[in-house]
Simulated scan of single mutants.
Amino acid sequence: MRIAALSDIHGNLPALDAVLADVARRGCELVVNLGDILSGPLFPAETARRLMALDLPTIRGNHERQLLEQAPERMGASDAYARGRLDDAALDWLRALPAALRLGEDVLLCHGTPRSDLEYFLEDVDAAGARPAAPDKVAERAGDADAGLILCGHTHLPRSVQLPDGRLVVNPGSVGLPAYAWDQPYPHVMEAGTPHARYAIVERGAHGWSVMHVALAYDHGTSARAAEQHGRPEWAHALRHGRMPPPARGAAA
Score class of each variant (00 low, 15 high):
Leu168Gln: 07
Cys152Gln: 14
Ser116Gln: 05
Leu101Ala: 08
Asp144Lys: 15
Ala100Pro: 07
Glu140Ile: 01
Ala139Thr: 08
Leu151Ala: 13
Val175Ala: 04
Asp126Phe: 03
Gln162Met: 14
Thr113Gly: 12
His154Ser: 08
Ala179Ile: 04
Asp92Trp: 08
Arg141His: 02
Leu118Ala: 14
Leu97Gln: 10
Gly173Gln: 01
Glu140Tyr: 11
Leu101Ser: 07
Pro98Val: 07
Leu168His: 07
Thr113Glu: 09
Ser116Met: 05
Arg167Val: 04
Ala99Tyr: 13
Val107Phe: 03
Pro135Tyr: 04
Gly112Tyr: 10
Pro114Cys: 01
Val175Thr: 11
Arg159Phe: 06
His154Leu: 09
Val175Phe: 05
Val138Pro: 03
Phe121Pro: 09
Leu108Cys: 08
Ala134Pro: 10
Glu119Ile: 12
Asp92Cys: 12
Tyr120Leu: 13
His156Arg: 14
Ser160Phe: 09
Asp144Leu: 14
Ala134Val: 10
Ala128Asp: 14
Pro114Trp: 02
Arg159Cys: 02
Cys110Ile: 13
Leu91Gln: 10
Pro135Ile: 10
Glu119Val: 11
Thr113His: 11
Gly153Thr: 02
Glu105Asn: 14
Pro178Val: 01
Asp144Ile: 07
Cys152Pro: 15
Leu122Phe: 09
Ala139Lys: 09
Trp93Leu: 04
Pro178Ser: 04
Leu163Asn: 03
Tyr120Ser: 13
Glu105Tyr: 05
Asp124Asn: 13
Ala179Glu: 06
Leu168Asn: 09
Glu123Met: 13
Leu101Arg: 12
Tyr120Pro: 11
Leu122Glu: 10
Arg141Leu: 07
Pro135Ala: 06
Ala179Ser: 10
Gly104Pro: 04
Leu97Pro: 08
Pro132Thr: 00
Val169Asp: 08
Asp92Ser: 14
Pro172Thr: 01
His156Asp: 12
Arg115Ser: 15
Ala89Cys: 02
Trp93Pro: 05
Ala142Cys: 15
Ala99Phe: 13
Pro172Asp: 03
Gly129Lys: 00
Ile150Trp: 04
Pro172Ser: 05
Ala133His: 03
Val169Met: 10
Asp136Lys: 14
Lys137Ser: 11
Glu123Val: 00
Ala134Ile: 04
Cys152His: 15
Val170Asp: 07
Val107Leu: 06
Leu108Tyr: 08
Gly173Pro: 09
Leu97Gly: 02
Pro172Val: 04
Ala147Tyr: 03
Gly129Thr: 02
Arg141Ser: 06
Asp106Cys: 06
Gly176Asp: 09
Pro172Lys: 03
Leu168Glu: 04
Asp92Leu: 14
Cys110Lys: 13
Pro135Thr: 10
Arg131Leu: 10
Asp144Tyr: 14
Pro114Ile: 02
Leu91Phe: 02
Asn171His: 01
Ala139Ser: 12
Leu149Lys: 07
Thr113Val: 05
Ala139Asp: 09
Pro158Val: 00
Leu108Phe: 07
Asn171Glu: 00
Asp106Met: 02
Leu97Ile: 11
Asp146Arg: 04
His111Val: 07
Arg159Gly: 00
Leu103Glu: 00
Leu157Lys: 02
Asn171Arg: 03
Trp93Tyr: 13
Glu140Lys: 14
Tyr120Thr: 00
Pro178Ala: 00
Val138Arg: 02
